[in-house]
Nucleic acid binder design. Structure first.
Lengths: 200, 200
DNA sequence: TATTATCGTATAACAGTGTTATATTCCACT
DNA sequence: AGTGGAATATAACACTGTTATACGATAATA
């Protein structure tokens, strides 16, 4: 512990610039989406030189990776709910509702993790792992429901249906032609429940 | 007719450069998606100067607009099917199947029209109209089915469910983490049929 | 303690992007 | 033939991501 503390402190000193950069990136990202994320803008707001983004991260790829992971972790956390009730449909629906909240409240993150970004960006292994973790969580939740309800539909298939509906609604609501005054969350949740009850 | 022919010919002469640009843009777009679409690359392939893209189109925005409209027109055409059979579910399913084919065969167009592109692009009024036309077609088809089946679900709601499922599957299949060897079309069609039959 | 090495940082540059101001060519019409 | 106007080319501007070089401070070593 104490042996490591020195090197930890050294890491923390470096972290200072690291977190400064990451915070600046997050702010710009939330303000103006991925198009507002330029290396110079990030470094300017962080009060550092552009080179810091290449020493602390792997350039812009590293910044996008960090935000990508953050986004998928939010999706994971949204679905990582425990319900005392034994009826697992509630678990699934609550997970979807929280998923939808994340997508609405963090539109920039959501757009980033679902490919609506700079075409040059390719998620790293760590980022892909975060994505897989989130999907595995959804499959797990769905599997619980199917088992409790005594349904024989494959849980991967059911989970894909679920994700397609929820993500489909989110993606359409993000589209330029989407009516802004619709209650997309309610629409999506109704569709999910209808679909879940139709499984056999 | 003949009166217009002269101006038409003049238009055609202009069209030469216009179509040359558009063809070059389409080629590059199909080859490498939106990231391969640079003003200089387009003009180079067209054998013209960059300025032509600003005189014939409104810069890159105009190029993207043309491809956006092309994309939504393909979606519209996909759903614009006539079925002799009175059972309109076939109409809906066939429309979805053709929609899915368009999305699979023209991934670049599909990504463009659904926001997975350069964040700077904002579709023009003409482009937005093309999008609205496609959605209206889907609502129309869905409405036919609901009427024939004697269902009282709102046709906008049903159409949104339909679109969310189909687009959701397409979007997920385009995602970096999507398994490449899955039959996404079959998955989506099964989900659509299941969902349609669950409506009341 | 003095020196060396290393790491983080800044400056400046390179190659690319969309866009546009200026200049030039070319063609149609009077 | 000459003039007007449209299409084009050249070059530049402001921006992007990235990197080579140089500088400085801090840590480890002789």
């Amino acid at each position: 512990m104490l042996y490591l503390s020195t090197s930890c402190f050294k890491s923390d000193e470096n972290m200072d610039s690291r977190t400064k950069i990451l915070n600046s990136a997050s702010e710009l990202f939330l303000e103006g989406g991925v198009s507002a994320l330029s290396v110079r803008a990030i470094s300017k707001r962080a009060g550092l030189s552009t080179i810091g983004i290449y020493s602390h991260f792997q350039g812009k790829q590293g910044i996008l990776d960090a935000l990508y992971i953050e986004g998928f972790n939010m999706v994971y956390d949204a679905m990582n709910v425990e319900v005392s009730d034994k009826a697992s449909l509630k678990l699934v629906l609550l997970g979807c509702e929280r998923y939808l909240s994340v997508a609405v409240d963090n539109e920039a993150h959501y757009r980033l993790i679902f490919g609506e970004n700079d075409a040059a960006y390719e998620p790293s292994k760590e980022a892909r792992d975060a994505a897989d973790r989130a999907f595995a969580k959804l499959v797990h939740n769905t599997g619980d429901y199917l088992r409790d309800a005594g349904l024989k539909t494959d849980r991967f298939v059911a989970a894909m249906d679920l994700w397609a509906i929820v993500h489909g609604y989110v993606s359409i609501s993000h589209h330029a032609r989407a009516k802004q005054d619709w209650d997309w969350k309610a629409m999506a949740l109704r569709a999910v429940e209808l679909h879940m009850r139709a499984l056999d």
